[in-house]
Design a protein around this nucleic acid. Structure first.
Lengths: 206, 206
DNA sequence: TTGACAGGCTAATTGCGATTAGCCTATAAT
DNA sequence: ATTATAGGCTAATCGCAATTAGCCTGTCAA
C-alpha cells in the first residue's frame, strides 16, 4: 500500500480512538513511519486528511447502497431466497449483520469516528444516521417484508416489526463498541433476541 | 446562581455541542459574561471545569440510582402500581421515559457530551453505559417483571422482553439527539412500538 | 476605618502543534 | 548523462489558546 493510503488508514485508526482534535499530525506521521512535515507531501493539511477519509467513506457507502438497492429492485430473485426461511436462517441474518458491522475494521473505525465527530458537523450526523439507522431499517424492512409475504412472519406493521428486529441489534452494537469485553455476553443476548423475535412474530399454526 | 455554577452550566452546554477540545476557555467565559482569565479565580484549569461537571454528574446519577433501587426494594408498593395496567399506562411509561431523557436539559447535554468524549476515556464510557444501557434495562426489567407477575404481560424471558421494550426507545432517542427535527416522526413510531409491544407480549385471552 | 479577600480586568507569557522553507536522494523519463 | 520529480528530513516559523502576573474595586468583618 502506498504512503498516501497508509496515512489515511492510520489517521482513521487514530481519529476513531481519540477524535480528530486529540490526534496530532505527528502521531499520524509516526504510525506511518515518517516525520510530520513529510505528510504535507501527500495532503495539504490535517483537515484534508480527514476530508479524504470522509470522501473515501462516502464512495464506499454509496457503492454499498447501490448494490443493496439493486438487489432490492430485483425483488423477485431475493424473494426466492427468503421463501423457505427457518429460524436458523433468521439467526444467521441477524448475526451476520451484527458481526459485519462489529468486526469489519473499516466500518468499526469509521463508526467510532462518526460517533465522536458528528455533533460538530451536521453532514456527519446525517451520514451516521443513514448508515446505522435509516439504511439498515429500510433494507431489513424489505427483507422482513418478504418474509411476511412468504408467510414466514406475521404482522400488521412491518415498519415497527423491523424496528423490533433491528433496534436491539443496534443497541448491542453500541455496547460492544464501548466495551469489547462484553462481546460474548452480547452475542448470547443477540441470539436470544432473535429467537424470541421469531417466537413472537413467527407465524405458528394459526 | 453564582458564577461558579454558571461556568459549569455554560461549559456543559458548549462541551455538549462541540466537544471539549473544540471549546475555548474564552468561549466559556464569554457565555458567562466575564473574561477568560477570570475563570481561573474559580477553577484551576480548563480540565478542572470538565472534571467538576463529571463529578456533579456522578453525584446526581448516584442519587437517582439510589432512589430507584429504594423503590425497587419496596417492590410491594410498586407492584400495586402496576397491578392493573392498561395499554394507556404502558404507553405513558415508555413515553415519559423517552421524553424525560430527551428533554431534561441536563440529561440531554450530558448525554451528548458523553457521546463525544467517551472513547478517549474508559470511565466515561462506563458511565454512559450505566446511564443509558444497564440502568434502564435493569429498572425497566424490574417493572416489566412485575407486569408479568401481575399477569398483564406474558413471556418466558423477561430480559429479552425488556430489551425489546427498551432498545427501540434507546435507538429513537439517539435519532432525536442527532436530528431534533425528527422528533415528531419519532414520537409516532415510539407509540406504535409500544402498542405493538403490548399486542405481542400482552396476555390476551388465552 | 482598615485590611483582607473575592472576583473582575488587561497585558504578558508560554508552550505546543500545524505548517512552511529549504535541502537531499533516488528513481525514472528524455 | 542529465534533469525533473517524488518523497523524505531538519530546522524554522506562526498562530493560537491556556495560563500567569499583577493590578483594581467593592464588600465585610474586626
Amino acid at each position: 500500500m502506498d504512503t498516501k493510503h497508509r496515512i489515511l488508514n492510520e489517521a482513521l485508526t487514530l481519529f476513531s480512538e481519540k477524535g480528530y482534535a486529540n490526534v496530532y499530525v505527528s502521531d499520524i506521521a509516526e504510525k506511518v513511519g515518517i516525520k510530520a512535515p513529510s505528510l504535507y507531501k501527500h495532503y495539504k493539511s490535517k483537515r484534508a486528511i480527514f476530508d479524504a477519509i470522509i470522501e473515501e467513506m462516502n464512495s464506499k457507502f454509496s457503492e454499498q447502497a447501490k448494490a443493496l438497492s439493486v438487489n432490492g429492485t430485483s425483488a423477485g430473485a431475493d424473494a426466492e431466497l427468503y421463501k423457505n426461511m427457518s429460524e436458523e436462517h433468521l439467526l444467521k441474518l441477524g448475526r451476520e449483520f451484527f458481526l459485519f458491522f462489529l468486526h469489519d475494521d473499516y466500518n468499526r473505525k469509521f463508526r467510532k469516528m462518526l460517533t465522536i465527530e458528528q455533533f460538530g458537523n451536521p453532514e456527519l450526523a446525517e451520514t451516521y444516521m443513514n448508515m446505522y439507522v435509516d439504511m439498515p431499517l429500510s433494507y431489513q424492512g424489505m427483507l422482513l417484508g418478504m418474509l411476511v409475504q412468504s408467510g414466514f412472519l406475521k404482522t400488521d406493521n412491518v415498519q415497527v416489526m423491523t424496528l423490533h428486529f433491528y433496534a436491539p441489534i443496534y443497541m448491542l452494537l453500541t455496547v460492544c463498541d464501548r466495551d469489547p469485553s462484553r462481546e460474548e455476553e452480547t452475542l448470547k443476548l443477540l441470539d436470544e433476541h432473535i429467537k424470541q423475535f421469531n417466537r413472537v412474530y413467527g407465524r405458528t399454526k394459526e
